[in-house]
Write a protein that binds this DNA or RNA. Structure first.
Lengths: 225, 225
DNA sequence: TTCAGTATGAAACTCAGTATCACCGTCCAC
DNA sequence: GTGGACGGTGATACTGAGTTTCATACTGAA
């Protein structure tokens, strides 16, 4: 039907009023009135005032969780970097709503805090997932924590850049780049196929370094080990 | 004097009542009554109910900020990994209070959310500090975000382990280990002396790899670039 | 003493969030 | 049909956090 659900009507009314009059200045009575329902009904659809701004957060987290469980990736970090794409895609899908929400969240401390705790839920999900896959290997907890926080941080960096730019481009390439970055960073910290071995970085070079310099550095390393 | 400050009395009264009767079940009137002051006075010393559980958070953040500004480290990641020791040290200093608070925070969702947003403040501080030092280099924002989140994550992992174990050991060695881990991970991502160049990882190897295998991989890379 | 500044208490208010009850529609069983 | 179970809604009252305002007491300085 053309009639949107009550949850949607309430959420839209809330965001509209927050935009017009500010977050603190609008009461739940105002929201309910604009949506054409009673205050009771608001609290049947949302646990709290700020819930109305993030109506689909729980389902999104569940979707990411499901994707993670269904993943066939052979390393934890690849599974997680893959699953996190869902989140960015969800923001890009209805950019209009995302941008409105972003402007709101930036201004209202209560909403900012709420978003931070939401992000922490993802990080926890990732940490537990990676922790299970790394279980038994040395420093498993530490590495799981680092990988999870890095994936979340990289995602947020890309998302924030896209939001700040007004959602004017497709950020998926940037996310790919960031996730490759993360995977490269942590490749040495995850060894799924040879659990007993330790991988190390031999050397780093600038792109403009001559092949001779690279070979010399590598030879030096090989002699010294 | 032997008389503790009102803030301290209020904070202790709050934590004690939260322990005895639960967080939601104790009102601010209860806290004020036990501290021997009025409700008004409570709100003059704390912005909110949960503020009483984290009375020294603002000063601690300021201390870390000051240490960061005064740092003479030559790379951002070293400066931050050094500054974050202050936080762990602060927890260890009065382990009794830290453990009480930890047990409380674990049980009360409102306090957990509050702590998460507190941690985010450190991460933001670190991110901005690193971002300034990396400014101009490629992927500066992304790397700043990753480094900041990793330092915070590593610190939290060590702290959480210590708290879960009941504060029975000195965690500073573990923090050193974790921070060395982080520094090693990000060494390749920070080049303080050649801000214009881009460093890349040529390849990674296990320690048992033969020198021939390493040289072959490096030659292959050099041919392909 | 007087004045200013500061810490406190008292009281009233707004509003988020909870709990309870009554109402109304639909669907199903008999 | 009648009755009842049930899910969604509205109305009402309540608790308690947080704000605001005013009055009061105490301090030290001129």
């Amino acid at each position: 039907m053309g009639t949107p659900s009550i949850s949607r009507r309430l959420s839209e009314a809330a965001v509209a009023l927050f935009d017009e009059n500010g977050y603190e200045a609008t009461t739940i009575d105002d929201i309910a009135a604009r949506a054409g329902v009673s205050r009771s009904t608001f609290f049947r659809h949302f646990r709290s005032k700020d819930d109305a701004v993030f109506p689909d957060h729980d389902t999104l987290l569940a979707t990411v969780d499901a994707r993670l469980r269904a993943s066939a990736a052979d390393t934890a970090i690849v599974a997680v970097t893959d699953a996190v794409r869902i989140v960015l895609a969800h923001y890009v899908e209805d950019a209009e709503v995302s941008l409105r929400r972003y402007r709101l969240v930036r201004q209202v401390p209560a909403l900012r805090d709420r978003e931070i705790t939401s992000v922490a839920r993802y990080q926890r999900l990732f940490r537990e997932f990676i922790g299970k896959m790394l279980d038994g290997s040395p420093d498993a907890d530490l590495r799981a924590e680092l990988m999870a926080s890095s994936v979340v941080a990289a995602h947020n960096q890309v998302l924030r850049g896209w939001l700040r730019a007004g959602g004017t481009y497709d950020p998926s390439d940037l996310l790919d780049h960031a996730m490759r970055y993360v995977i490269a960073t942590f490749r040495q910290l995850e060894q799924p196929h040879e659990p007993g071995s330790e991988q190390i970085v031999v050397a780093t070079f600038s792109r403009s370094a001559s092949p001779q310099a690279v070979m010399a550095a590598v030879e030096k390393h090989l002699r010294s080990r």
